[in-house]
């Protein structure tokens, strides 16, 4: 994947050391069946305040989150974001339930929320925020009778990881810009100098293959 990165990342990339992307299989053994190793570690943090497990999560996700911050307009606050995310992981870890989300998904949503929160606080000078960041961006959780079973959800992360590698680069590029560079579909279209419709159809094709689209009216 690293070789596919687009030019807009070069500024950031020149400032950083790239490391090989670790795959899950090299890390802690896939013990308890469906539970992935990071989810096991996160569960240990939540249940036993296990600092060794916390440190392993930090070593794995810290560098990812730092890149995420740099790409998303927080270049000069990247380390600050990593800190906020990890403090938040520690505080919320007792609520983590591996049946509801893989650790990487759970941590991604915390990174996203903290990124939004930090940008909001930087923009806002005096007035207090009228709506809490989490009230806007956190999906209402703890609903036990969800139609999509937990197994299904965990499978979906594994499946997304696998099928993403088969998508054409033009599709993954667009998705990466939306997730990693804080760009709307319109901004991606402007940047790549292609019509908005083309961006949307690339995303739709990708989401179809990733089976995210269930029943859109206008596919």
């Amino acid at each position: 994947m690293i070789t596919q990165k687009n030019q807009t990342h070069t500024a950031i990339r020149s400032a950083i050391k790239e490391r090989p992307v670790s795959t899950l299989d090299q890390k802690p053994a896939r013990a308890e069946g469906r539970k992935d190793p990071w989810s096991q570690l996160l569960e240990k943090v939540g249940k036993n305040q296990d600092r060794e497990a916390y440190h392993s999560l930090f070593q794995h996700f810290g560098p990812q989150i730092k890149y995420y911050a740099m790409a998303n307009g927080l270049a000069s606050h990247a380390e600050e974001l990593v800190q906020e995310v990890f403090v938040s992981i520690w505080r919320k870890s007792s609520l983590y339930d591996w049946r509801k989300a893989a650790a990487s998904t759970w941590i991604f949503t915390i990174a996203r929320n903290q990124r939004i929160d930090m940008l909001r606080k930087m923009k806002r000078t005096s007035a207090e925020m009228t709506i809490e960041t989490e009230d806007l961006w956190q999906i209402p959780g703890d609903n036990e009778n969800e139609p999509v079973t937990s197994l299904h959800r965990l499978m979906s992360e594994r499946r997304i990881r696998e099928s993403l590698s088969h998508l054409p680069e033009e599709q993954t590029t667009v998705i990466a810009k939306v997730y990693m560079e804080n760009k709307s579909h319109q901004m991606v279209a402007n940047e790549l100098n292609i019509p908005l419709g083309t961006v949307k159809s690339r995303v739709r094709l990708a989401l179809n293959k990733l089976k995210v689209i269930l029943q859109d009216q206008n596919v």
Binding site: R19, V21, Y68, A71, S104, F108, I160, R161
Partner: peptide, 12 residues
């Protein structure tokens, strides 16, 4: 989950 996988596949 797609976002998590995108994040994991970026440079670190």
């Amino acid at each position: 989950s797609l976002g998590a996988v995108m994040m994991e596949q970026q440079p670190q």
